[in-house]
Nucleic acid binder design. Structure first.
Length: 275
DNA sequence: GCGCTTGTTGTCAT
DNA sequence: AATGACAACAAGCG
C-alpha cells in the first residue's frame, strides 16, 4: 500500500483521531504482526497514553507516555482505522487497541506483511530499520551533496537504486516511476551514469511528487485508504504509473510497462531514454 | 483452476 | 560491499 505521502496522511489522521487517548486494552490476533515478545508488547502498551504520532520515511512512530514507541510499518496493505463500529473488525484485523473514549484503533492487513515493534523512544535512531534509512525528500538532510554520492556509488538501474531505502527513503514503486518520468530518465539507466543535472532533477521532482501526493491525500490505485476510510486522489495526476497503453502527457507516445528489478515499471519510451 | 500480479522490506548466498 | 533471488501472504484477474 503506502509510500511516504500515504504514511504521512495516515499519521495526520491518527494525530487528529487518537492523540492524547489512553489505550485501555490491546488484542493481538496475528502473533507474527509483532516483532518481539507478544505478551510483553501487550503488557507495555496497555494503560499508556498516546503522546504523539510521528513518521520516518514509511515508518509510523506511535509515541507512548511510558518512554516507548510503537514502530509500525504498513508494508503493502496495512491500514489503520479508528472506529467504534464492531463491523469494522473482520478476519484481516490483526491488532485492536481499545481507547478510553470507546473507540478502537484497528490494524487491518490482508497480506499480513506489516509489522509492529516496541522501541525505547530515546533510542529510536539506533533501531536497525530506522538507522539504515537514507535522507528523505522534504527534509533538511535531502541535499545535493548528501544524495549525489549515495546514488552514484551504485551501477544498478536507477529505478532499483531509488527504491533502496538506504540510498534515500520515502519513494516507492508509484512515485519512483513518476520522478523518473519527470526527470526524463529511463528506469534502466545505470545509476552511476547520471550527471549533476539528473541528480538535481531527482531531488527536485522527489520533493515535488511527495508534496503533491500529500496534498492529494495519497494515491489510491488498488487498496489504500486513510485512517478515516477515505481514498486519496493522487492517482488522477499520475503520468506514468498504471498508465501503460495511454499516451504520454508530454509527447503522446504510448506508455510502456516493463519489469525492472522485479517490479512493474512504467515509462515513456520516447521521452525517457537510456544513457 | 492455474499462473501471474500487487504503493515493501528483510535475509541469504554469491 | 554490492547485487539478485527469494520469502513473508492473500486476493483479484484473464
Amino acid at each position: 500500500m503506502p509510500e511516504m505521502p500515504e504514511v504521512e496522511i495516515v499519521k495526520r489522521g491518527l494525530i487528529s483521531q487518537i492523540k492524547g487517548r489512553k489505550i485501555t486494552n490491546v488484542e493481538v490476533r496475528y502473533q507474527n504482526l509483532i516483532t518481539g515478545d507478544v505478551p510483553q508488547f501487550i503488557d507495555i502498551v496497555t494503560g499508556t497514553t498516546i503522546e504523539d504520532i510521528g513518521r520516518r520515511a514509511k515508518f509510523l512512530l506511535i509515541h507512548l507516555d511510558n518512554g516507548y514507541t510503537i514502530i509500525s510499518h504498513l508494508r503493502m496493505e496495512g491500514k489503520y482505522r479508528v472506529s467504534a463500529d464492531p463491523a469494522m473488525i473482520d478476519k484481516h484485523s490483526h491488532a485492536i487497541f481499545t481507547l478510553d473514549n470507546g473507540q478502537k484503533l484497528i490494524y487491518n492487513d490482508v497480506r499480513k506483511f506489516g509489522r509492529m515493534q516496541l522501541w525505547k523512544t530515546a533510542d529510536l535512531a539506533n533501531n536497525k530499520s530506522i538507522a539504515k534509512l537514507g535522507p528523505e525528500p522534504l527534509s533538511d538532510a535531502f541535499t545535493f551533496d548528501a544524495v549525489k554520492p549515495r546514488i552514484m556509488r551504485h551501477r544498478k538501474d536507477i529505478k532499483t537504486v531509488l527504491l533502496d531505502q538506504s540510498v534515500m527513503s520515502g519513494l516507492g514503486n508509484i512515485y519512483v516511476d513518476e520522478v523518473l518520468w519527470n526527470a526524463k530518465l529511463h528506469p534502466e539507466t545505470p545509476a552511476n551514469h547520471l550527471n549533476d543535472d539528473d541528480i538535481r532533477n531527482i531531488i527536485k521532482y522527489s520533493n515535488e511528487e511527495m508534496t503533491m501526493g500529500i496534498d492529494a491525500g495519497g494515491s489510491t490505485v488498488r487498496s489504500y485508504l486513510d485512517s478515516t476510510g477515505h481514498a486519496g486522489h493522487m492517482q488522477d495526476f499520475l503520468h506514468a504509473y498504471d498508465r501503460e497503453g495511454t499516451p504520454c502527457d508530454r509527447c503522446g507516445t504510448e506508455i510502456e510497462k516493463i519489469k525492472v528489478g522485479g517490479r512493474g515499471t512504467h515509462f515513456c519510451p520516447h521521452c525517457q531514454v537510456v544513457k
